[in-house]
Nucleic acid binder design. Structure first.
Lengths: 348, 348
DNA sequence: TTGAAAGCGCTAACAA
DNA sequence: TTGTTAGCGCTTTCAA
């Protein structure tokens, strides 16, 4: 039987209210009583019953995160790092993190409804925002606190943090153009993902600025996995008129493209340039090291979580629409002259 | 203001006890009353207050999982898949999953204490069991329900599920020996991890069975990341007498070894054989595809979670010490004759 | 079949 | 400074 404040009250000869106050902190309690209570609590090994506290306070001190992923075999480092970020931030503020997984689709909202309706969490984090994102629409409608990593095209206002994908992709494309490439293939993410569109805009923008005609035969849609990257890359390299450079919308696909190139006996960084987006840990140690656009996912996770925690404290966010500049990371996969050593990095 | 059973009771003209019973299910309630209550509940948009229920029932219907990882940049697919497994299993049984991250070390137990003492979860899942694992010792001492993925060398009994790493590594090593290799390097995981020792035993065992002398200069310790694999591989390939085959204790390191080989102008699958352990998604699409030992992590996650849920229901596990046979997955990274097509697999 | 009432452990208003 | 008391929303005896 766990120790309750009643037990402490009995032993200290005071009321439970006094115990509660003493335990809580500063409110009007004689410091002598306070010390006595604290001492007894420690002796008896008291630990508050969190559920009782939650019921009383009508707060769960828990934030929720539903990982939007297809199938069991997801190994996208994005989620691992993001999770670590929000987990650590939440823990530092004594919040619990509730996690579940659910594939995007019609049944997805069920998961959100469950967390919202039954008040299992105080707020939610959303990632991989989508075209007319139903999750956002739902949470807005329910007036439920949340922060998104990613913007939306819904006609509503909500707090988010995003990376300027257009900017990042434009810089990356420009880099390839500067290297002399004109046939630059592009492996997109699914189009319903918001970031997919922003990045694509950046790609198109760079082509246009350099008067390079847009060639739709060079644009393929991928599913963000290394396998999709492999398939898309393979298809591109098998063309009668293959591209001299390939940009993948994320690193995982870019790794697949590198594999495809090798399978086609093309030397990446020499016969063909390959670039990605994200800068996952594997990018640096790929062979050759992968040029990419860095998103500091762990930090983003922390930041987004921090925004939500502020919101839950009733604070108003000083800036609820953050757009961060990503960083271009140049490595050997796009460099004709192979330099020894790791990547050099530069903004724009 | 959320709807409560009191609201429903008022509207239905019955007592809250009746409402509670009607909502709960089968207990003695007139079916007419029951239907009335259900109808009103639906109309009013009733959803139970989970915290109230938890306080009353003295159960949280939540299981906890603390990801034991160093640093923010962890992208080990192991955790993603495991998480998906336990998350889905838990969700199907209407359990919540509480996740946090904490690096192994002296402060690690704090995290466990918090979850246990304050009864934030009903049970815990442990992975990557270690030599004299303090987490297990603590949970046993507290008599707190948990299930581990991995065995332990503590002198206590606890429920676990494990993969027979010795068996798997022996089969893998034997495969390399069958290919004619005699200088087989081994990149280990940190020695305090239990699985590290089992796998190493399998490696030694295979050598011994084939009368191959153990050469400690071929055994290196790694930290399970691709970077460690790269460094270890590089060091091995720079030796005056390099190995003809390299086994890494996990796939992530094996991928690093492949990169190192390429950086040293060695062709994997031709000049040198490389093998890993886990069969992460990337293994199949590596260049060349990686020979490995498959652990069905997602399924393991589900299974381990299922065991815990049984335990929490007060059931006795029919088998609380499960040791599964892993499956050897042969791919091109260890095959001298490059065969077209994916891996062939065979257990033993 | 139903209702009244007693908690689960805690916080917080109100009195003393 | 302290105690009394009324809940938070629910489940579950015990009576009726």
């Amino acid at each position: 039987m766990p120790v309750t404040i009643q037990d402490i009250a009995d032993r200290a000869g005071v009321s439970i209210a006094t115990v509660s106050r003493a335990l809580a902190g500063t409110t009007g309690v004689a410091s002598s009583t306070r010390e006595l209570v604290l001492k007894i609590a420690a002796e008896m090994g008291y630990h508050p019953n969190i559920m009782a506290r939650r019921l009383q306070k009508q707060r769960t001190d828990t934030i929720g995160f539903i990982i939007p992923t297809f199938g069991p075999r997801f190994s996208d480092p994005f989620f691992s790092e993001f999770l670590a970020g929000i987990g650590n931030e939440a823990a530092e503020h004594n919040f619990d993190l509730l996690v579940s997984t659910c594939a995007p689709g019609p049944k997805e909202l069920e998961g959100y409804r469950r967390l919202v309706n039954e008040r299992r969490v105080d707020g939610l984090l959303i990632v991989r925002t989508r075209h007319q994102d139903a999750r956002i629409a739902y949470l807005i409608e329910q007036d439920f606190p949340f922060v998104a990593f990613g913007r939306s095209d819904l006609d509503v206002d909500f707090p988010y943090l995003d990376i300027d994908g257009k900017q990042g992709m434009r810089a990356l494309t420009q880099h390839l153009i500067d290297q002399g490439h004109t046939r630059i293939a592009y492996i997109s993410a699914p189009w319903d993902l918001m970031f997919s569109n922003y990045r694509f805009e950046g790609y198109c923008d760079a082509l246009q600025r350099n008067s390079i005609a847009y060639d739709e035969s060079l644009v393929v849609s991928g599913c963000l996995t290394d396998m999709c990257g492999y398939e898309a890359g393979h298809a591109l390299f098998c063309k009668s008129d293959p591209p001299s450079a390939v940009i993948a919308c994320n690193d995982l696909m870019a790794l697949g493209v590198i594999s495809a190139a090798q399978a086609c006996d093309l030397k990446v960084g020499q016969d063909v340039a390959v670039a990605g987006f994200d800068d996952i840990p594997l990018a640096k140690h790929a062979q050759p090291p992968l040029t990419t656009v860095r998103q500091p996912i762990y930090q983003i996770g922390r930041r987004v979580c921090s925004m939500l925690l502020h919101l839950l404290q009733g604070a108003t966010l000083e800036d609820s629409h953050l757009l961060l500049e990503p960083e271009l990371v140049l490595r050997k996969s796009t460099q004709l002259v192979a330099k020894k050593g790791g990547g050099i990095s530069g903004g724009r």
